[in-house]
């Protein structure tokens, strides 16, 4: 089902909104970092690359057809500080599958912001987007990432070992997933 959310999406402490051109500095602040890029497909981004990425993101705000991605800036409601980004990709229209992703500025790790933002995106995916299953993946060594998936109530569905090369070494990857029924049960119990 096509998804054209009314922005911004608000949670207790956060505001999820489309990217704007004014976000370049804040995005550079974390996408330029080696430790942030370690488990991403991209290398650390230069300022120009950040500007280009943001330009693409300003229109990635709806899911109209399969393959579309929604990428939102996550900002603190308190002081409008941009702390990261979350994404939802529409992987299959027929089987109603979506993929969840996130990148956060390490300065703001450990305060539950990523959990809060990704939970809002799960609600959007299973709510208005009517998805049946949402999955996410990460490098097996990226503990904070898979711990977040477990906090979201996702199950580990796959553990691939040396199934591909990644940045010059063997890749080891986790897939996590949650079904609509599991999400419903979780929301009803809280």
């Amino acid at each position: 089902m096509a998804l054209r959310p009314d922005y911004p999406l608000l949670t207790d402490r956060l505001c999820l909104r489309p990217f704007t051109r004014g976000d370049v500095d804040a995005v550079c602040g974390y996408r330029g970092r080696e430790d942030v890029a370690r488990y991403l497909f991209d290398p650390p981004l230069s300022r120009d690359e950040c500007a280009l990425a943001i330009q693409q993101r300003t229109v990635q705000t709806t899911l109209v057809e399969e393959g579309d991605r929604l990428v939102l800036a996550v900002e603190l409601r308190e002081d409008k500080h941009l702390i990261g980004e979350v994404s939802l990709i529409w992987r299959s229209a027929e089987a109603r599958q979506g993929e969840l992703g996130w990148i956060f500025d390490p300065q703001f790790h450990g305060r539950g912001y990523a959990t809060e933002a990704t939970n809002a995106l799960l609600d959007l995916g299973f709510g208005s987007a009517d998805l049946h299953r949402i999955f996410a993946r990460c490098a097996a060594r990226n503990d904070p990432s898979w711990r977040l998936m477990e906090r979201l109530g996702m199950r580990r569905e796959a553990h691939f070992r040396q199934h591909a090369l990644f940045k010059g070494g063997w890749d080891e990857e986790f897939y996590y997933a949650i079904l609509r029924d599991e999400w419903l049960a979780m929301r009803q119990s809280t």
Binding site: A95, R133, E157, A158, H159, F160, R161, Y175, A177
Partner: peptide, 26 residues
């Protein structure tokens, strides 16, 4: 072979929700 993946309802196959296992060995 080791069980590496257990996908649940990740796709439709002939009109039904699919369940697929991946096994692997190095």
């Amino acid at each position: 072979l080791r069980l590496e993946a257990h996908y649940r309802e990740h796709a439709l196959f002939q009109g039904e929700w699919d369940e697929e296992l991946h096994f692997a060995i190095l």
